[in-house]
Every structure is written in C-alpha cells, then in structure tokens.
C-alpha cells in the first residue's frame, strides 16, 4: 500500500495519490512501448517498417513476416540461416537448462553457508569476495575468461609445463562447447546477494532447534530452509533464466561452430547481414548485394526480424507469467529492484 487507506479523503493526499498513479502509468507505458512497436512492426510490410514518420498501426497488415519465420524455423528458407531455427532455439534451451540446474543450487548453497554456517571475520571476507565480483566490469574479465576456456584451468594462452619436464599440464579445452557458455554464469553474485539477504532473515534459533532435533546440515537446508525460501528461489530462477537466455556477447566470443550458437546470437547475426550495406572491396560489395538479394527475395525484412525478436523474448514472458505469484511475493519480501 502506497498510502494508508485512512486519510485518503484528504485533498492533498488524493492529489498525491493520483500523481503517483499517473507516474506509474507513464512508467508502464514507457516499458511496454518497445514491445508494442515490435508486435506492430511484425505485421507491417517491408517498406512501411522503414517509413518516416513511423506509423503506429499497420496501414496494410501483412503476415509475410510470420510466414517467412515459419519457413526459417523449419529450415526451408534457403540461405538465410545456417540451420533451421529450432536448432538454435534448442541450443538456447539446453544452455539455459544447465545454467539453472547447476547454478541455482550452487548459488543458494553458497549463500546459505555464508549466512548460517560461516562465522566471524571469515564470513564477512567471503561475502565481500563474492560481492566484489559484481564490481568487476564484464569487459575486464572477457579475455581472461576466454583464455580459461582455451586451457581450463589455466588462464594463459598456453598451458604451463609441469616443472622439470617439457610436457604441458593436461587441460580441458571447453572452448567452442556449450559448457564454455554455461560455466561462467553458473554462479551469479547478484543472486548470491538475494539469497544471502533472505537467509539472513531466517532466525538462527530455527536452525539451532533443528540441529538439536538431530537434523544434518543438508537435511536442515532441504527440509526447513528450502520450503521457506520459495519466493526468493522464484526471483533468482527468473533472473538467472533471463540472463542465460538473453546473453549475447560471451557466446559470440567462445562459440565458433554455427550449429552451436544460441538463438540470441543467431538472430543478431541475421540482423547484421541485413543492416550491413556496402563492402570494403568491389567483390565484397557484390557478395553483400547478393546476400541482400537473397534475403529480400526470400521476403525477410525488418518485419520478419520483429517476429524473430518476439520468439526470442517469448520464453522470458512465459517464465514470468508462470512464476508471477512467487515473483511478486519475493519482490515484495525483499523490496528488490
């Protein structure tokens, strides 16, 4: 409740209340407008999308974009994509699945251990260490991470030799596999923060009572802490889901084989081909023009891309709607975001 119900008859309060409502409505409109434009653009024709000033309602609605996308999904749209779209979708699903399955238990258990099992200065140090990873700009870790995937577990261009010999340490090159995309975002410091914040609110005495009752630490976590924490799990699963689903730069860096790309990257590559105009040489320009010809000939334009963008953002929406109840409870619980 923003304002108490009691004094709402007061004129000043009433004005303030309506002002807040108007402000929130504006915020909602600003948030929803891109989605509206995306949806509307997908029904426009190729020329109308690029028309200026933009139209807010398709003058000549066409389903060309949607039809084309169905072909792309089935892989029957010629040279537009390297493989049918459902393959990239499936890649995204796999990556997201493993990020959640590995990441959420690790993050939550780390937070629980930090909140309830560690004590004294050590607890504070490890907390600061984990939170410190939030302050590290992603650009800074890009190259070390890349080297790590080449020679796991060494963040070096080449694995060092075993001392006294000429043979290098054995390494696990996970580069160009899905694992290279999954592992770095398994532990998310922000989710750690959410979990830790929640676990801190559980009274120590509940844990102590369970210990006196004879529950092992894992049993206490599973039987007593977990059922209390459903809302915070919903929030963290959702943030982890959207992060894993929408991540772009990192898979672009570590994945090389076209068939292994997640959907977010593939859509970008497709868009890139449309946007690029002109080349550095006559042959390149000619080749570009040919590709362009192919795509436009196939009917792909911005309207088709909008359909693909809708497909891309759909799972995040669905995930939100499915756990909306818990999300809102969790957000209210912690006053997040």
């Amino acid at each position: 409740m923003l304002f108490p119900r009691v004094g709402r008859k007061q004129p000043m309060l009433r004005i303030a209340w309506w002002a807040v409502v108007a402000f929130l409505c504006l915020g909602i409109a600003l948030h929803l407008f891109p989605f509206y434009f995306m949806l509307v653009s997908s029904f426009k024709s190729g020329e109308e999308v690029l028309a200026f000033p933009p139209t807010f309602w398709p003058q000549d609605p066409s389903f060309a974009g949607w039809k084309l996308v169905f072909q792309i999904v089935q892989g029957s749209a010629g040279q537009l994509l390297d493989a049918p779209l459902w393959l990239f979708f499936w890649n995204s699903v796999q990556i997201t699945f493993w990020v959640l399955v590995i990441g959420i238990p690790i993050t939550s258990m780390a937070a629980y251990a930090n909140s309830k099992l560690q004590r004294g200065p050590m607890a504070r140090w490890s907390f600061l260490f984990f939170i410190g990873t939030l302050m590290m700009p992603a650009a800074l870790t890009l190259i070390p991470n890349f080297l790590l995937t080449r020679n796991f577990p060494f963040a070096l261009p080449n694995a060092p030799n075993i001392p006294g010999t000429d043979t290098a340490f054995p390494t696990f090159p996970i580069w160009d596999t899905h694992w290279a995309v999954i592992f770095p975002i398994c532990f998310q410091a922000f989710n750690f923060l959410l979990f830790k914040g929640f676990f801190d609110t559980i009274p120590d005495s509940v844990i102590q009572a369970a210990r006196v009752d004879g529950g092992s630490e894992f049993n206490i976590f599973r039987r007593i802490v977990l059922p209390m924490s459903v809302p915070v799990y919903a929030v963290t699963i959702w943030t982890a889901f959207s992060l894993a689903w929408d991540q772009f730069l990192w898979p672009l860096v570590v994945l090389q084989t076209p068939e292994r790309m997640p959907m977010s990257v593939e859509l970008y590559l497709l868009m890139e081909r449309i946007v690029q105009s002109g080349g550095t040489s006559a042959e390149a320009a000619a080749a570009e023009a040919e590709v362009m010809q192919d795509m436009l000939g196939g009917g792909l334009s911005w309207n088709g891309l909008m359909v693909l963008a809708i497909l891309q953002s759909l799972p995040v929406f669905i995930a939100f709607i499915v756990c909306r109840e818990y999300l809102l409870r969790g957000i209210r619980l912690r006053g997040l975001k």
């Binding site: 009572a209 210990r211 006196v212």
Partner: peptide, 16 residues
C-alpha cells in the same frame, strides 16, 4: 548438538 539428544525450548519458539 545433533548427537547429544537433548531437548531444548527456545525463547523465540524457533518453530519450523
């Protein structure tokens, strides 16, 4: 504490 088998009542009840 798990192996001591004592019974304890906490001040803040500490119910699950």
């Amino acid at each position: 504490p798990q192996e001591r088998g004592v019974g304890m009542v906490f001040q803040d009840y500490a119910l699950y």
